[in-house]
Design a protein around this nucleic acid. Structure first.
Lengths: 220, 220
DNA sequence: GTTCGATTGGGAAATCTTCCCGATCTCGAT
DNA sequence: ATCGAGATCGGGAAGATTTCCCAATCGAAC
């Protein structure tokens, strides 16, 4: 018997090497393939589907979520376990929306990863304790993302503001008057309790509204 | 013979476990201790200095740089190898300023880590190829951090602006008039070619001026 | 069918930004 | 010592933005 096969997706070779060693110490699991990008993961899974896909969210370009969607599109029954550094609940929720079966943060003890692999191999969902705790807190306290105070249009505009777009650019992009954007801008700041535009950027980052890479300002 | 001893510092247990396996496959290296925080690293090194310290920059709270400084304060000859996800040159430079002997990004092949360990054990400096390339490009093209266009006061104020402080708070903190802060604010935007305050935040982040954690805005 | 909230924008006063200017202060060079 | 460059600090005024209030529209829920 060869146990459960695993496709390991992470853009850091050393990290992959480490996990491979760790996983293969575990009887019943075998790393069948590795991939270092969204597209490589997709192709690898197409070529030879594995029982489990372990994937990091933060990869250059399309954020791992894309890889999840692609793989689930190929195989509705793919078992995908997100194993990432991102501790924010928002990332976890997005991963599940994209089709993941499990979400384990790298802060978790190694056993958590092993346990999660076992769980999702049996068709169950798995989250690491820290994420579970966040979900519990959210449910019990009714606390939500600060963005819940915002309507969809406001979220959209906040995203553009936080990514550095000017009022004119936003008005142009959305085919609205500058006045409307200004009014939204003020309203968003008020609702989010932000006294500064820089604050908006941080809110957007924490809410997972903004990807960290590829923003740039072209200073020179 | 027991080879070179290593202290492994990373806040992710699974990551540590992976590296440990990886390193111990290498003849001549032995992971003598692990630590998951700045203070734990410091205490572990005090208790039993190792030949090499491998440390991740991104740890909760004090950013790993602090751990480097603490350890170097205890032992001027400590060999510290930074092994991190941060690919920005600015992080690498800061690490060397803090006293690191090597800087390897996690995007590097496993051999790079092994090679770097060997190099710094012999008292040499080591950087991974990607960082070396960045340094070379910077030297050859004369390109520097966008912040080089700014004076120290401007950098200080940029930092406060980007972290979300209002004009009044900054004026207060620095004992300057609001007018002066406003003038700096404008000047900084002009020099950095930023058309928006949100842009300033991104510049500050990319320049390594801002730590990603613990900023918050207190929305609710 | 009416009420509620989301969306879109005008108006006007308050505030901020920008650009220009001058006063100091430090520092290295002459 | 003096000079000049450049950083630091702030005033002034015109122009742009922000803020707050208000109104019209539209779709969904009751």
């Amino acid at each position: 018997m060869q146990g459960l096969t695993i496709l390991l997706v992470d853009d850091h070779p050393v990290v992959r090497a480490g996990y491979r060693k760790l996983i293969e110490l575990q009887p019943g699991y075998r790393v069948a393939a590795e991939a270092d990008s969204t597209s490589a993961a997709y192709l690898a899974y197409r070529r030879a589907p594995t029982d489990i896909v372990i994937i990091d969210l933060s990869m250059p370009g399309s954020s791992g979520l894309e890889a999840i969607r692609l793989i689930k599109a190929v195989d509705r029954n793919a078992r995908i376990l997100v194993f990432t550094m991102h501790e924010g609940l928002s990332h976890a929720l997005k991963a599940f929306e994209a089709g993941a079966s499990g979400y384990v943060t790298k802060s978790s003890p190694p056993e958590a990863l092993i346990a999660a692999m076992g769980a999702i191999a049996e068709g169950r969902k798995a989250v690491s304790d820290d994420i579970a705790r966040e979900i519990a807190v959210e449910r019990l306290s009714g606390r939500r993302s600060p963005l819940d105070a915002l309507g969809p249009r406001e979220v959209e505009i906040l995203q553009l503001i936080a990514s550095g777009r000017t009022t004119d650019e936003i008005a142009d992009a959305l085919s609205l008057s500058q006045k409307t954007i200004q009014n939204y801008h003020s309203g968003i700041k008020a609702k989010l309790n932000a006294r500064t535009d820089a604050n908006l950027v941080w809110v957007a980052i924490e809410a997972g509204l903004i990807e960290m890479r590829s923003v740039g300002v072209g200073a020179g």
